[in-house]
Amino acid sequence: MSQFRCVIQEGSTADARSDELERRLQDHHARHYPGEASSVSWVTVAPGYMFTEGRRSTSSVISCFVDHETTRDDREIYMRGICDLWTELTDCTDHEVVVSLTETAAASQE
């Protein structure tokens, strides 16, 4: 099953709306890979433990582990959708959203 691992800041809007974000991530995945289920896990970082450019971070880091091989265009569409839903729900900027995609199908064949 494909998975999302989300690192968010304690007390942030993402923290407050994690249930909704989780549902939207799963909906996004199921639209991109029709009907496919996915799971979401959360790492909530206490203030003073994560930094961006050396300062307290306001960023969210969403790591996607996808059971599919992808093309560049495919990845761009998939990750763009995640950026869009995240900024929409949390009011953060694009600069505060980091998305990465690992192809677990390809990794398991290595």
Partner: peptide
């Protein structure tokens, strides 16, 4: 190209 930040790959 497996990472998007600031809205771009």
């Amino acid at each position: 190209s497996h990472t998007m930040e600031a809205g771009v790959l």
